[in-house]
Simulated assay, not measured.
Amino acid sequence: MQFTILRCIFDNTYEDEWITDELSIKMIKDIDKSDVIGPHLVQSPILGPKYPQRNCPVE
């Protein structure tokens, strides 16, 4: 449970603009070869669509 809480804090604490910022888009493309479609969708050529989530699971 503690790991889940920490993971939620680090994985889900961001602003939409951080992903859609021009520099972020370039870095994601260079490193991950993925396209940022919007703040809630990153299209990976290997993994397919990835949806950054803000919700932590309730246990």
Rank of each mutant, 00 (worst) to 15 (best):
D30F: 03
D21I: 00
P49L: 02
P39W: 02
I19E: 02
V58M: 08
Y14N: 03
K50C: 05
Q43K: 12
D30N: 14
L47F: 07
D35R: 05
Y51Q: 05
E17R: 14
E59S: 12
D30G: 05
P49H: 05
N12M: 06
E15T: 13
I5T: 13
T4E: 13
R54E: 01
Q53T: 14
R7E: 01
N55I: 12
M1K: 11
S34Q: 03
D32N: 10
M1L: 14
G48K: 04
F10K: 11
D32C: 15
Q43N: 09
N12G: 14
Q2E: 13
M27I: 15
P49A: 13
D35V: 02
I37D: 01
L6I: 06
T4N: 11
S34T: 04
W18V: 10
E59Y: 15
S44W: 07
I37Q: 04
V42D: 01
S34N: 03
R7L: 03
R54M: 08
D21V: 00
M1P: 09
K33V: 02
V58A: 09
M1H: 13
I9L: 12
Q53S: 14
H40D: 15
E17H: 11
F10N: 11
D11M: 13
W18G: 03
S34K: 06
P52S: 07
H40Y: 13
P52G: 09
F3D: 10
I37V: 15
C56S: 12
M1Y: 12
C8F: 07
R7Y: 01
M27K: 12
H40Q: 14
Q2H: 10
I31K: 12
D21K: 06
D32Y: 15
P45C: 05
N55T: 12
E59W: 11
I37Y: 01
Q53A: 10
K50V: 11
I9R: 09
Y14P: 05
Q2L: 13
E22Y: 10
D16N: 15
R54G: 10
D21S: 07
I31C: 04
V58T: 11
L47P: 00
F10P: 00
Y14F: 15
V36I: 10
G48V: 03
I19D: 02
F3K: 11
T20R: 06
P45K: 07
L47S: 06
E22L: 13
W18S: 12
S24D: 06
P52I: 06
D35G: 00
C8D: 15
V42E: 01
I9E: 11
G48E: 05
R54W: 02
G38E: 11
N12L: 00
S24V: 02
K50W: 08
I25E: 09
M1W: 12
I9W: 04
R54C: 01
T13R: 05
Q2T: 14
V42R: 01
P57D: 07
D21L: 02
I9D: 09
E22Q: 13
E15M: 10
R54H: 03
C56T: 04
K29Y: 09
C56D: 07
Y14K: 04
P52T: 04
M1E: 15
V42I: 15
T20I: 15
C8A: 14
C56M: 08
Q2V: 14
V42F: 01
T4C: 07
Q43V: 02
I5L: 12
I37E: 07
L6Q: 10
I5A: 13
I31V: 15
D21Q: 07
D30C: 04
P45S: 06
K29V: 00
E22C: 03
N55A: 12
C56E: 08
L47N: 08
P57G: 07
T13K: 02
